[in-house]
Design a protein around this nucleic acid. Structure first.
Lengths: 221, 221
DNA sequence: GATAGGAATATTGGATCCAATATACAATAT
DNA sequence: ATATTGTATATTGGATCCAATATTCCTATC
């Protein structure tokens, strides 16, 4: 018997599909902050009932991507400047540590992959994919840390501010700076200098945060 | 008109109540790891239908407290030694930073409250409340950091291992050591020495982790 | 014209019902 | 006796229905 076995346990439920789609839409900024999420409307869009939608919304709320009020419904969560600042500060702490832990485990394949993402980031001109490639670059390195719990935290904290990060990359000249910093991080990794890579990662995140906060402070006046 | 105004928006839904109860039961170890969670059974216990139960289970899964498999149901999540180790390492990183950020903001009232919790921890003989008082002690100090996002992360990571931490406190002589360490942290806070308080917090968490891992390695052979 | 009150509508939360899947167990064949 | 198949039961996921609450809009009153 020759057939490719798939693990059927991971078949996605309707709630999973709705959750993934909404998460993506929020992260990428397709759903604006403050926008109402009507259960009925979403259910119709996915050709399903409200039950899986409610489950998806409940999950999104747990991750802070939406806020809900009883009998009033869900809206895409917004963040204050202070909250954004805090999340960037937190990310700097955790991602710097993850980078430090990753460096000793980096092998040639991983480094090659990271270099690919880095190059791709520099080449990409459309804003749509910067956020995604940026993630891929960092994740490819972080994965070597072999710290699944840390990575999950990194993912959820990135989720919260990704929308703003994309705006920052696009609207300021963040891409040029980000690319320069990516190359520096990659160079440190190639040299096996964990401390340097960690410090550069920390600065990279804090830089982006500062730039974003400045941008938003200007915009929100 | 004289009455205490309550914000009715935060009235708990059935799903909230079920979620809180299950979370508490898992954290406190009343539900053993691997135990099945039948929707129908839980619904009957709370005099409700399965809908709110399903929502509660979905939320618990997002926080890693249970694992579910499609059409098979939910079980209380267990952690491997490696996972426990990783979470303690992570907590050490984050809680040390939170402590560092908290010290400059500590005022007399907060310190008095922390001292109360610390004393209460030393006096308590029954194992049941150690976990709770331990949390209260640390949270009372952490709150001064004014970093709600960090605190939420600390809470969820503590949730994951609280069950094991309680076992460690109870079954080894962890309480004596923990209490000594609490007093040292408190002293550092009173002196306003953020670096010291941070380092002691880090060691406190790592100590507990090492002790727990040693205990579990022995037990799980 | 502005405002308070109330009916009509929309929306959410929860209960019940049905379909899909898993599990337990009996029946049958080897 | 053991393994395999089929069937009954249990359980979950999703759809539909009902109740509780919020929102809208209309009307009456000043």
């Amino acid at each position: 018997m020759k057939l490719v076995a798939v693990d059927i346990r991971q078949a996605a439920s309707a709630a999973d599909i709705v959750y993934d789609a909404l998460r993506k839409a929020i992260i990428e900024g397709d759903l604006a902050e403050g926008e109402n999420l009507r259960q009925d409307q979403i259910a119709q869009m996915f050709n399903t009932s409200r039950i899986p939608v409610r489950e998806a919304l409940s999950r999104l709320e747990q991750h802070g991507l939406i806020t809900t009020e009883r009998y009033k419904g869900a809206v895409v969560a917004g963040l204050s400047i202070e909250e954004i600042d805090e999340i960037f500060e937190f990310r700097a702490l955790v991602e710097a540590e993850v980078m430090r832990l990753a460096v000793p485990n980096l092998d040639q394949d991983t480094l090659a992959e990271a270099r690919r993402h880095c190059a791709q980031f520099a080449l990409e001109t459309g804003s749509a994919r910067w956020g995604e490639i940026n993630r891929s670059f960092h994740y490819s390195l972080y994965a070597a840390s072999k710290r699944p719990y840390y990575l999950q935290i990194v993912r959820t904290s990135l989720d919260r501010i990704d929308r703003y990060l994309r705006a920052q990359l696009t609207l300021t000249n963040g891409v040029i700076r980000a690319n320069r910093e990516h190359e520096a991080i990659l160079a440190a990794c190639l040299q096996g200098d964990a401390e340097l890579a960690s410090r550069l990662t920390r600065d990279h995140v804090l830089d982006a945060g500062r730039s974003l906060v400045a941008f938003l402070k200007d915009q929100r006046t």
